[in-house]
Amino acid sequence: MSLVINHNLMAMNAARNLTTAYSNLGTSVNRLSSGLRINSAADDAAGLAIRELMRADIASINQGVRNAMDAISMIQTADGALGVIDEKLIRMKELAEQAATGTYNSDQRLIIDSEYQAMASEITRIANATDFNGIYLLNGNLSAETHNGEGLNPTGKLKVHFGAGNDSAEDYYYIQIGNSTASALGVGIGAGAGAQAKSVSTQALAQRALEGIQQAIISKDKIRANLGALQNRLENTITNLQIQAENLQASESRISDVDVALEMTEFVRQQILSQAAVAMLSQANSLPRMAMQLLGG
Rank of each mutant, 00 (worst) to 15 (best):
L142S: 02
Q293D: 11
L53H: 11
T237M: 08
A96S: 06
I255A: 10
G194N: 11
L53W: 03
D131A: 15
S183I: 11
S34V: 12
Q270E: 07
N226Y: 13
D70I: 08
E52P: 06
L32T: 02
L248M: 00
A68I: 08
Q196W: 10
G80I: 13
N105R: 12
T130F: 09
L110M: 15
N8G: 00
A193Q: 10
V258M: 01
T237H: 10
E94C: 14
A229E: 10
Y173G: 11
L281G: 06
D44P: 05
A59F: 00
I243K: 01
S23H: 05
I218W: 10
M74R: 05
K198G: 02
E94V: 07
E211C: 03
A291F: 15
A45N: 01
I238K: 08
G151L: 15
A42C: 02
R269M: 07
G165R: 04
I135M: 07
E235K: 15
Q242G: 04
N67Q: 02
D131C: 12
E94A: 14
K93E: 08
I272R: 08
A182S: 09
T202Q: 05
F132G: 01
M74T: 06
N240P: 03
K220M: 09
S60D: 06
A11C: 09
M292P: 08
D167L: 08
L230S: 13
N105K: 13
E252C: 14
L137I: 11
L89Y: 02
A144T: 03
R55T: 11
H161V: 15
I112S: 00
Q242W: 12
T155P: 00
I175Q: 02
Y104Q: 15
N232E: 03
A204Y: 02
A11Y: 05
G186P: 03
S73N: 06
E211A: 03
L227I: 04
L210P: 01
N128E: 07
T20E: 06
H161C: 12
A284V: 12
A184G: 08
I61L: 14
S256H: 07
V4G: 14
A14G: 04
G178P: 02
T103C: 09
G134N: 13
M292D: 11
V84L: 13
G296V: 14
P288K: 04
E145R: 10
T130L: 09
I85D: 01
G156F: 10
I255W: 02
S121F: 13
N148A: 15
G163F: 10
D167Q: 09
L9C: 04
S33N: 00
L152E: 00
A291K: 11
E122I: 12
A81W: 09
D43E: 07
F267A: 08
A284E: 00
N236C: 12
A204S: 05
N141Q: 14
R51L: 13
G26R: 04
V160E: 03
Y136F: 15
S60G: 01
V84M: 04
L142Y: 05
G190H: 08
S40D: 00
N148D: 15
A276I: 04
G134H: 00
T124W: 01
T146P: 00
